[in-house]
Design a protein around this nucleic acid. Sequence first.
DNA 1: CACCTTCTTAAGCCTTTCTTAAGGGCGCCG
DNA 2: CGGCGCCCTTAAGAAAGGCTTAAGAAGGTG
Lengths: 223, 223
Amino acid sequence: MTTADRLSLLLAEDDPALGPLIAELLEPDYRVRLAVNGQEALHLGLTQPWDVMVIDRGLPVMDGISVIAALRTKGIATPILVLTALGATNEKVRGLDAGANDYVAKPFDAGELAARLRALTRTFPSPAGPVSIGTWEFDPASRSVRSAYGDLVTLAAKEAELLEALAAEPARVFTRDELLAAHFQSTDQPGVIDTYVHHLRRKISRTVIRTVHGVGYQIGDAS
Amino acid sequence: MTTADRLSLLLAEDDPALGPLIAELLEPDYRVRLAVNGQEALHLGLTQPWDVMVIDRGLPVMDGISVIAALRTKGIATPILVLTALGATNEKVRGLDAGANDYVAKPFDAGELAARLRALTRTFPSPAGPVSIGTWEFDPASRSVRSAYGDLVTLAAKEAELLEALAAEPARVFTRDELLAAHFQSTDQPGVIDTYVHHLRRKISRTVIRTVHGVGYQIGDAS
DNA sequence: CACCTTCTTAAGCCTTTCTTAAGGGCGCCG
DNA sequence: CGGCGCCCTTAAGAAAGGCTTAAGAAGGTG
């Protein structure tokens, strides 16, 4: 999920008739990039970030299952839906176990495909309630942070966005570029992040956000 | 994922014959709890943590789709697979959009159900996955080591690289040249390794890394 | 329109990390 | 037990990265 725009979708389908058809079908909801063989799909999958992938099982050069296995081996965790002419259960099992997240047999129903893609890309609206960050409680709605002692601090919009992004995945370390791309204007330079981190640390606590030298920032861990 | 044990699975199925049958089918791989109506399923879903849920569409008291919607509203993000007698595409779409992650129509194939559940519960060996080293936990992503007592130590990039390399093959003894070639500039001299080993021993523990005299280093084994 | 908050940029200073080097200590082998 | 390597430890300069500050721009409000 890179922008507020449509989600990016990598479609790997070699059938010259079906490929563009599916692409057109999905275009209203996704930014579709069509790959016509397995190698191309693998390359695109590895070199660019995607929100979701739809991969045909039978692809030239390198078959779909191999592409998926290769992507997974490289640590790509993007949701993948396998599209296939083969409806046999055995094939489904193999595809899913190779690392696919869903499996749709051709001929498929456009509505079902769309629904399954929605299910794969759905991100649950973080429970609107307050999020606890260490000993603090952060309420995105009111953009305020309450300490264990009851002190209330209100944050500016950007400050809150940054904190929310970091808190969404406490275990993850975010690079400045990631945070920048997701929450600030693309013209901004990475240094902006430093400034806001400083603001948050001053307003809340030095330990809310942890620096990972040479990498980026992470929500401050307990202890 | 609560323990190293089987995953916990909440099964909501009212058919007195089918429920226990499915439960038995899944028992080898999951700790199954059977709920026989929607209300019970909702209550269990809200009050206990589950690794995955299998919910029948048509449940007494409260239908499956409503249960899912209610769970999602409360912020429960557990993967849910809908099981149903209704194979109509329309029904599938509605189920998925209510918050289900997958949809299997009865009669279903046991192998496919199992594969789809595996796909739902699969956690990718995220490159960020913490590695346990003796009594410590090393998280390459945040480059931090946590002791059994909870103390957190952050490592510099090179320190982390070295530790990660050693931890990748605990049984193996690495020579300085191997480590050097893989993780440092080729111009560096073997002595660099010694320095970083010293850093790690000081930061974590004298016993993290074991010296094999005349050969190189190895991850400090339990002993 | 004046005032205030928020956003963005930029520059200098400070801290951490990397790399090299040298002296002392220790283990292994004869 | 003595000698010879090998290993441990310390330290310090250089480089890279992060922190802090400050000030102008932009936007919103009374």
